[in-house]
């Protein structure tokens, strides 16, 4: 944990020069930027298969260029603001959501330090707290979007997002605490290194389940997509948004899926670890993230939406006590063994 002299901001475990940091952030952003449209297409294709239909197959061979067509449509649409909307906050909301989503990408580790270059954006000692800090800022994007739209559907969606957040976030944090106790560190790189013998999904299976359930609520994905619940609230907080502002919400949602998958891979599935030579590490990490993202899609196609009071009582009455028990048992076992 050496401090780099002259760095103004907090202790960030920077191991490399500034220009490498800039290159790294561009590379991470570009890789995720490329994965998101593929994920979008694969999701629509898979949903089609799950529901015994074709899915997109008109644009390009096998519908492969569909995401490009979607993005082209969204970008060329008029940036429209409804009459009842609050001017600046309405534009700020999607920006805030996508800003915090992209910033969270920085902590996902894709490999250890190799030749003086860390295969991650930053390795902060507060580690996983960074993820929770930015996910709570992302919530204000949804809230502002819903509130500033001046529509009752948007407003109800935003309020549901607030009720949902306080129901699952504590349990989600506690679920990760078991892993933190076992690894003895909050830093994601150290947590991956602590899984050399056994992946934490084995001793912390309960924690993994609770984290994934929380992850579905975190990303507003079915079965917990209550803030947008298209059957009841049109599109919830996003009802009044069109064009690329809607696109930003959408893009942020898919980045968040990748982030939650990435955090779950790091905390429970051994992160970049896998058989094969060292250069395969980032591939292994991306592969695990991808498989978990497929799990998200599978669940979306399988489960119906919960009612929001069901989610709240589930979060408070089942997940939270279970997560607390998990932490207690882990702590006692770690001390005793």
């Amino acid at each position: 944990m050496d401090l780099v002299p002259g760095l103004p901001l907090a202790d960030t475990n920077f191991v490399d020069a500034t220009w490498i940091l800039i290159v790294k952030s561009i590379v991470i952003f570009l890789v995720i930027l490329m994965i998101v449209p593929i994920l979008l297409l694969v999701e629509r294709k898979l949903l089609g298969r799950f529901q015994q239909r074709y899915g997109p197959n008109r644009v390009g061979p096998y519908g492969l260029i569909q995401p490009l067509a979607d993005v082209g449509k969204l970008i060329s649409k008029q940036g429209f603001r409804p009459k009842g909307a609050v001017p600046i906050l309405y534009e700020l909301a999607p920006a805030l959501t996508i800003f915090s989503a992209i910033l969270t990408l920085a902590i996902l580790p894709f490999g250890d330090v190799k030749d003086g270059v860390g295969f991650y954006g930053i390795d902060v000692p507060i580690g996983i707290l960074y993820f929770f800090a930015f996910s709570s800022i992302a919530f204000y994007g949804l809230l502002l979007g819903g509130w500033a739209s001046g529509s009752k559907y948007s407003f109800l969606g935003a309020m549901r997002a607030a009720a949902q957040l306080i129901s699952y976030e504590i349990a989600m944090g506690l679920a990760l605490l078991g892993v933190v106790i076992m690894a003895g560190s909050l830093s994601l790189v150290d947590i991956v290194k602590a899984q050399g013998d056994i992946w934490f999904i084995v001793p912390q299976f309960v924690g993994f389940l609770i984290f994934m359930v929380g992850g579905f609520a975190e990303t507003n994905r079915p079965p917990f997509d209550l803030p947008e619940a298209d059957a009841e609230l049109v599109a919830g907080y996003g009802t009044e948004y069109g064009g690329m502002r809607f696109g930003s919400f959408m893009f942020a949602e898919y980045i968040e899926i990748l982030i939650v998958s990435g955090i779950a891979s790091t905390m429970f599935l051994g992160g970049w670890m896998g058989p094969g030579p060292g250069w395969l590490d980032p591939i292994w990490m991306l592969f695990k993230m991808w498989m978990l993202a497929m799990f998200f899609i599978w669940i979306r196609a399988t489960l119906p939406r919960f009612r929001y009071d069901q989610l709240m009582s589930f979060g408070w009455k089942i997940l939270l006590p279970l997560a607390t028990l998990n932490v207690l048992v882990t702590a006692v076992l770690v001390v005793v063994l």
């Binding site: 907090a10 202790d11 902060v124 000692p125 507060i126 707290l129 960074y130 929770f132 800090a133 996910s135 709570s136 800022i137 919530f139 204000y140 957040l165 306080i166 976030e169 504590i170 944090g173």
Partner: peptide, 15 residues
Amino acid sequence: AQFLAAALIVVYAGA
């Protein structure tokens, strides 16, 4: 004070 900063955001801004 990184921990304090993160705790401030997670607990106050987030909850």
